[in-house]
Structure formats: structure tokens, C-alpha cells
Design a protein around this nucleic acid. Structure first.
Lengths: 243, 243
DNA sequence: TATGCTTGTAATATTTATATTACCTTTTAT
DNA sequence: ATAAAAGGTAATATAAATATTACAAGCATA
């Protein structure tokens, strides 16, 4: 029978001290040995030197972003990496770019859930079970979304309207994509701010209106009577799939 | 017209007077009604008595610490609480988050950021009140209501009558939805005003009639002999589910 | 560091929803 | 049948949400 192995070490990488403290406290309480880094460079160094059993990695980092950190570490060692993200759009990057992240969790996360995920990932490694973050969102493979005369390609970040390629900025693309993944469903501005801009965003709600207008300028025949990206007054916006 | 309607009240809880003053000044400037408490006990009392729309709560307090205050208040009312924390000794914050604090901000904070966070949190609450559970992703249970030849979809804010999609305004939709959730049940105008328009609404009762009429124009074959949204003379309105 | 592109902000204009009012019609009770 | 009550309607006024615009700030790139 296998005895309990020595204490597991977890490396936390986040530039916000409060977040690190939350994690240190809770994971420490669970009996893990916790080490921390506040920027990407340091994270890579610590990972290679101390060889933690698991890494919690924020995607937004100074000096070297989380995605690059993930790639570099995965390049030279096989440690489970759990990514922290602030908005839904970032999940695509994690899953799509084949960085080798093993799991992800969106902020704001419940501490209980995070601890559970950490445990699960450690367990799986120990049992040598091959896991991938993809088991969370199978349908994420839908790189292409087609709604009416709208086509989105999340891999190419390309949009076609009536067959014609349209050039959207990243922000515009993400808003359109979020709406297009659930055609007909009315989405509030608040939801868009949270899912596209990120929960940490605290700006004017009208920002959404302006972005919507810019999208419309590019995809609608007549901006004054939108046929695709439609307003539901008093509620928010939706993609009209009635066609 | 009066201007007392939606002035939001914010309770500031901090033992340092200078901090309180900064907050009072800045939030007051933004048009909020600001009340203050300098210790935990008073804070709980004031919260329960005055029912502020949002609470700014320092974690370090005399008499009763911020965490306990948070817990007590959250226990008896559902108000957004924004925790203020000093930059060191942050471990406690975790607990704050687990206790149901909605957000936190670390000292020293930028006033601009704090005001933005306050706004964001109030906005979130408001969005949830106005469009009840619409995109909270919680209970999809009552997303669709079908009564006779009437179908309501609360996610799409869409109404179908005899298969045909009808375009209702938000107010119309909410009245119809309220009635449709309890088919056959007669609802008074007063109840509708309270449930759809809101507690604090004091306006003409005729408003209901007019709204009902507009709904009828859209869903009834013949407005002079309503088959779906029916009047119960002397009482109010109801959805006829006898069909 | 200059340049162009993206994004956010704030002020204003426009559109749409909603409320209110006055008056009309129907029902009810006597 | 008639008055009183209840409800309906349409026109208009008001309020609110949204659209638009111009500009500024940020960022990356050359």
C-alpha cells in the first residue's frame, strides 16, 4: 500500500497580493506547502528551481503573461497548471492555443471550488490519468459559429457577413461572439461587461453601446435598422436568428 | 416632479474619520445619500434600521470587526457589501469573501476606482431586480411558460400567440408574465402595480389598464372580446386558461 | 518619438416606452 | 330605465433608454 507522499508544493502566480493571500491561506490550511510569485519571470524561475507539484497561474501578469509562462514551463517540465482568468473570452486562448494548461477557473472563484480543483488535478496526476481541460467545454471545439448570414471563426478571428470578410477589432469580435454563441438570447450590458470585459472591469456601461454601434457599422446594411445585432429595449442586445 | 426617488443610500463603516470624510465627500458628489458608522455595533444597527443600498465596510473595526459585521448583516438582509482592507495582514479577507462580501478594495485605494466599484455593484443589483433572473443562469425552470395559445420565453423576452411571435415592450412582457405564471388567478391592479411597477411606485391605477390594453392589441384577435387576458370586473385581470 | 489604430468617455441628440389625462363606453344596481 | 361605478380608449406629455458623435487616452509598431 502506498503511503502518503510528502507534502505537495503548490506555486501560486498572481500579481495581486490579496488573491495570493487568499490562496496561500486556504491551500496552507489543506496541508499544502505554498510558494508564490508575483510576476511571470519569477514564476518560470521558481517553477524550474523548486519543481512544484502544481501551479496556479493567473493569465494577467506583469513582465511575462500567463500564457507565455505556461508555455515555457510546460516546455521543460510536466507539471499540472491551473489557469486563473477574469473573463470568459480568455478561456478560448487557454484551450485553443494548446499551451498545455490542465484546467482553468474563472474569477471570481469560490475558494472551495478552487481547492477542489487543485485536489482533483493532483489526484489525477498521481493516478496517472490523462486529463485535459477540454473535458470542461467539449463544445469549445466549435471554432466556427454560423448564425444566419453571420459566420465567426474563432481560430482565425475572422468574421464573414453574407460571405464577405469583415475586419473586427478584438473587443468587437468578442462581443459579437458572445452574443452569437446564444442566438436569440437577450444579454444584458452587465453580462457583457462581465463576460467580455472581465469582472474586474469597472467602467461606464455605455461602453457596451458604443462597441455595439461599431460592430453594427461593420456588419449591418443599415445601422439605423439593425437586422443582426438587435436591441431589446430595457434589457440588452441579441443576435436575431429568426432568419 | 420630486427628485427623491432613486437616490441610493450608502453606509460607510470605518473607524478613521479622515477616510470617512473622503468617502462622504466623493460619494455625496456623485449624488448618493451617505450615512456613516465608526464601529461595528453601530454599523449593524444602522444597516438594519436604515436599509442602505450598499455598504462600504472596513475590515478593521472597534467593538465588532468587519467580518462579523458582514456576517450579521448578510444574515438578515441582502445588501451588497464592499469590503475595505488595509494592505497587510490580508489573510482575513478570504473569510470576508466567504461570508458573502460582494467585492473588496484595498487601501490605499483610488477614489475613482472606489466610486466605480460602488456603481458597478449597485448596477448589478439593479439589473437583477429589473429583469428577474433573466440571465443569472440559475433557475431555467420558469424560463418558458405556456398557457393555452400563449407562450412566454423569459430568456428571449419573446412571446408567441398561436405560434406567431409577438413583440412586447419590457413592461408589457412583465405584466403578461406575471399573469401567466398563475393562470386563472385574478390579479388586482394594485398587485400588478406592486409586483411589476414596484413597491415605491405611486401613480395612477389607470396605468395598468392602458398597459393591458396595449397587450391586448398585440395578442387578442378581437380587443373588444378578449379571450386571453380577461377582465374580472370589480377585481382585476387574469389569463384565461380554460382553452 | 511619431503614427495610426483601438478603446473608453462624456456630452448631446434621438427614439421609444411609459404615464397621465380627459372623455367615452359598458356594466350593474336600483 | 337611469344613475353610478367600473372599465376602456386615444391623445398627449413626460421620462427613460439608447444612439451618436467627437475627442482623449492608451498601445503597439514602425
Amino acid at each position: 500500500m502506498e503511503e502518503e507522499r510528502d507534502v505537495k508544493t503548490i506555486l501560486i502566480v498572481d500579481d495581486e497580493e490579496p488573491i495570493r493571500n487568499i490562496l496561500i491561506h486556504n491551500l496552507g490550511k489543506e496541508g499544502y506547502n505554498v510558494i508564490e510569485a508575483s510576476d511571470g519571470m519569477t514564476a518560470v524561475d521558481m517553477a524550474l528551481e523548486q519543481k512544484p507539484d502544481l501551479i496556479l497561474l493567473d493569465i494577467m501578469l506583469p513582465k511575462l503573461d500567463g500564457l507565455s509562462v505556461c508555455k515555457r514551463i510546460k516546455n521543460s517540465m510536466n507539471v499540472p497548471i491551473l489557469m486563473l482568468t477574469a473573463k470568459d473570452g480568455e478561456i478560448d486562448k487557454i484551450l485553443g492555443l494548446e499551451l498545455g494548461a490542465d484546467d482553468y477557473i474563472t474569477k471570481p472563484f469560490s475558494v472551495r471550488e478552487l481547492v477542489a480543483r487543485v485536489k482533483a488535478n493532483l489526484r489525477k496526476v498521481e493516478a496517472n490519468i490523462n486529463i485535459s481541460g477540454a473535458d470542461k467545454g467539449e463544445e469549445k471545439k466549435d471554432a466556427k459559429i454560423v448564425v444566419g448570414e453571420l459566420e465567426l471563426d474563432s481560430e482565425k478571428f475572422e468574421v464573414k457577413v453574407r460571405g464577405e470578410i469583415i475586419d473586427l477589432t478584438l473587443r468587437e469580435f468578442e462581443v459579437l461572439k458572445f452574443l452569437a454563441t446564444q442566438p436569440g438570447q437577450v444579454v444584458t450590458r452587465e453580462t457583457l461587461l462581465e463576460k467580455v470585459w472581465g469582472y474586474e472591469y469597472y467602467g461606464d456601461i455605455r461602453t457596451v453601446d458604443v462597441t455595439v454601434r461599431r460592430i453594427r457599422e461593420k456588419i449591418e446594411k443599415d445601422t439605423s435598422t439593425p437586422q443582426i445585432l438587435v436591441t431589446k429595449r430595457g434589457v440588452g442586445y441579441y443576435i436575431d436568428d429568426a432568419n
